[in-house]
Design a protein around this nucleic acid. Structure first.
Length: 716
DNA sequence: AGCACGCCGACT
DNA sequence: GTCGGCGTGCTC
């Protein structure tokens, strides 16, 4: 037997360096186990790191000792394995792993004071207390006799903080970790298609299976997840539900809670550090049974995992666009495989990536083709906008009028916020462009300012053309703000609600608007993406997409897929109640073959066509694609860097293209270029890039440009 | 990323 | 004569 080399703890340190650092055991102690949270000396600083593995020291210099072990074996090996795969596949430094694995509160050396429990219970004295002279307090006492309640739900129920405060001061009520009971609504009876879908998932309840639940809007996908979730909760398993970054969380969470009769914890960037820590710990201990989170929740430690759900799996926000560029959906599938549990990917408009995986037999496609509750699909019609100058053709306006007269609600989708996408000089043709981006600035009339939606720069309205001095500046085109104005003029008797990031600034604005709209009554909704996402608005009988044309001719090979998704999602908003809906598509290119394909039928057959086209063109997901991106203030630097990088990456295993400018060639003052790397297999592509990464980093130009690798990019 | 060291311009 | 600009290099 060979003599043992010095065993070191290989530690991930929160710095953007492509390697681990070796440390010896703390003075007078032994090597902390893998997954331990430790404090280590790093240069002049003390940092929090994670022990990723044990191994022989890989350095000639003397090892420093670990300063302190904060938590031994905090991160389970299963998660370390997942992160290891992610760092190698997505090519991000191990230090980024710390950001993904630890909530902020645990990335600091100082122990974090745990936030007070957010539930309240009666103390023994509170049970006894006679509160006849304090009716409000007595009501609270009565409520709490049934079990602990969240502070928040007491506040929602209209109890004042002062009454609560008094009860706490008097020692009648105290914070508690005890689980809060949520009254459970009875199960909806699943229809045969839903039952069958649930049965397929449940058949795999104790092993890995990836099920792609492709349910048309209104088919009741959520009921299927929740049915399955209940069965797994009954077996004492945890359920992790991943959702895109959207503000519908409160509504969705309430629905999940009442259906499951369980409290659901949320995990997303909107939480305070303390709240995130609390959720993280509850997930790790198993106390949290149901967790609803955005993509970062895929890295939560789970004591007894039973099911992962990825809702709206096609949504681009599952892909992190900076830092560690991982895809939450794909990582979730890998995690489910490692855990040996089923994962359900749900969408009315599945991504071509997932459909391709279904074609290849890696996922099981379970279509739900019928709307639940008997609602039927809307009638589709193309509105030819040619020959009309305005933002809305007469045929569209007539349809709006007709539906309003029939007391229907109208939903109009337009993917541009602001008043007008361009401000132009009528005299010389000058356009207000961003100085830092290759983009027009958007005219916001209410703010009386021009804004760049890409870099955030903003300026007041120029009083006259900066080029020719004429004062005749015109707003060209219509964003949601202008559409709202136009519609209010055309239909003065009808409320017009604008839904976009500018109008829905308050926390609950959107939620409240949805409530109002669900209350019924004629109205027009005009808005961006926010409006297209799965909201149930039963009184909407007309939905329309106002601008499909730029997507028809986009340079982005994903544009047709995205357009298809938006169109089917918006169409799905119409006619979900008793009355059949209409759906209109406004275009100046009614003869475009893509529109023909959509009009023909359902999303899955459109997606099938699109997937065939990707295969024919050797584009993802038929091939693996990675981008090497670089940007700098001078255009030559990233271009030259990528040229040199191309030389280093040349291999028979990959096809290289570029450097070519990004679709948005300049952003925030940076010139952006990219090198396309394509290979038949994702793993071999990742391996090649990983092997050459040190050489790339060693290029002198690598220090002069900002660069990174993006595996499976979705933004070009 | 930080934080050092290191060599050239305007200030008490 | 110094304070300080950010280029370059290192972190087990």
């Amino acid at each position: 037997m060979m003599s043992e080399p010095v065993l070191a703890a290989r530690v991930a340190v929160p710095v953007p360096l492509q390697r681990l650092f070796d440390y010896r055991a703390p003075d007078g102690g032994s090597l902390p186990p893998i997954g331990s949270r430790v404090v280590i000396p790093f240069g002049k600083r003390q940092l929090v790191g994670l022990v990723i593995e044990h191994g022989p020291a890989e350095t000639d210099s003397e090892l420093k000792p670990i300063s302190e072990v904060l938590d031994g074996g905090l991160i389970p090996p299963e998660l370390l394995g997942l992160i290891d795969w992610c760092t190698r596949y997505y090519q991000f430094p191990p230090g980024e792993a710390i950001q993904l694995l630890l909530p902020v509160a645990l990335r600091r050396i100082k122990p974090f004071r745990a936030p007070p429990a957010d539930a309240l219970e009666l103390t023994p004295s509170g049970e006894e207390a006679v509160l006849s002279r304090a009716p409000r307090q007595a009501e609270i006492q009565n409520l709490l006799r049934a079990g602990p309640q969240l502070r928040q739900s007491l506040a929602d129920a209209g109890f004042s903080m002062s009454a609560l405060k008094r009860l706490i001061e008097d020692g009648h009520v105290r914070p508690t970790e005890a689980p809060v009971r949520v009254p459970r609504k009875d199960d909806l009876v699943l229809n045969p298609a839903q039952r069958q879908a649930a049965a397929i998932v449940l058949a795999a309840r104790a092993r890995f299976a990836a099920i792609l639940l492709a349910g048309v809007t209104g088919s009741g996908k959520t009921e299927v997840y929740l049915h399955v979730a209940r069965r797994l909760l009954a077996r004492d398993r945890q359920v992790l539900i991943l959702i895109p970054e959207i503000g519908l969380t409160p509504q969705l969470v309430r629905r999940i809670e009442s259906r499951l009769g369980q409290r659901a914890l949320t995990y997303h960037s909107g939480l305070s550090d303390g709240e995130r820590l609390a959720c993280w710990q509850a997930a790790r201990s198993g106390q949290a049974r149901v967790i609803v989170g955005t993509r970062s929740a895929v890295f939560l430690p789970l004591a007894r995992p039973g099911l992962i759900v990825v809702d709206e799996e096609h949504d681009a926000s599952f892909k992190q666009q900076d830092g560690a560029r991982y895809h939450g959906r794909d990582v979730a599938v890998l995690r489910a495989r490692q855990l040996g549990i089923p994962i359900v990917l749900g969408s009315a408009t599945p991504s071509l990536e997932s459909l391709n995986n279904a074609r290849a037999g890696r996922y099981r496609l379970v279509p739900l083709a019928e709307r639940a509750g008997g609602a039927v699909q809307p009638r589709w019609r193309v509105v030819d906008q040619r020959g009309h100058k305005g933002a809305m053709a007469p045929a569209l306006l007539q349809a709006i009028e007709r539906h309003l007269e029939a007391d229907g609600q109208v939903l109009l989708y337009r993917n541009r916020r602001g008043y007008a996408p361009v401000l132009m000089c009528n005299a010389c043709g000058w356009q207000a462009d961003c100085h830092r981006c290759s983009a027009h600035m958007t005219w916001h009339q209410q703010l009386s300012r021009l804004q760049c939606h890409h870099c955030g720069s903003s300026m007041p309205q120029p009083p006259r053309c900066p080029d020719c001095g004429e004062p005749d500046l015109a707003a060209v085109g219509a964003g949601t703000e202008r559409l709202e104005e136009l519609l209010s003029e055309l239909f003065p008797a009808v409320p017009v609600h604008r839904v976009d990031r500018d109008s829905m600034t308050g926390r609950d604005d959107f939620e409240q608007l949805l409530e109002t709209v669900r209350g019924g009554g004629r109205c027009i909704l005009v808005g961006t993406q926010m409006l297209a996402k799965g909201h149930h608005l039963p009184a909407v009988t007309l939905a329309a997409v106002l601008d499909v044309d730029q997507a028809l001719f986009s340079a982005d090979f994903r544009a047709p897929e995205r357009l298809g998704q938006v169109i089917f999602q918006v169409a799905g908003r119409s006619g979900r109640g008793q009355r059949r809906g209409d759906f209109l598509l406004q275009t100046r290119h009614p003869e475009h073959p893509l529109l023909g394909q959509m009009l023909g039928g359902d999303y899955l057959s459109l997606a099938g066509h699109l997937l065939d086209e990707r295969e024919a063109a050797a584009l993802p997901p038929a091939t693996a694609l990675a981008l090497l991106r670089a940007e700098a203030h001078q255009a030559e630097l990233p271009r030259d860097f990528l040229k040199q990088a191309a030389g280093l990456l040349r291999s028979s295993a990959v096809e290289l293209a570029g450097p070519i400018p990004a679709i948005m060639s300049r952003r925030g003052g940076y010139w952006r270029f990219q090198l396309w790397l394509q290979a038949p297999e994702r793993a071999s592509l990742a391996n090649l890039i990983q092997a050459r990464l040190p050489d790339l980093a060693a290029l002198p130009l690598a220090r002069k440009v900002r660069w990174h690798v993006d595996m499976d990019p979705i933004e070009l």
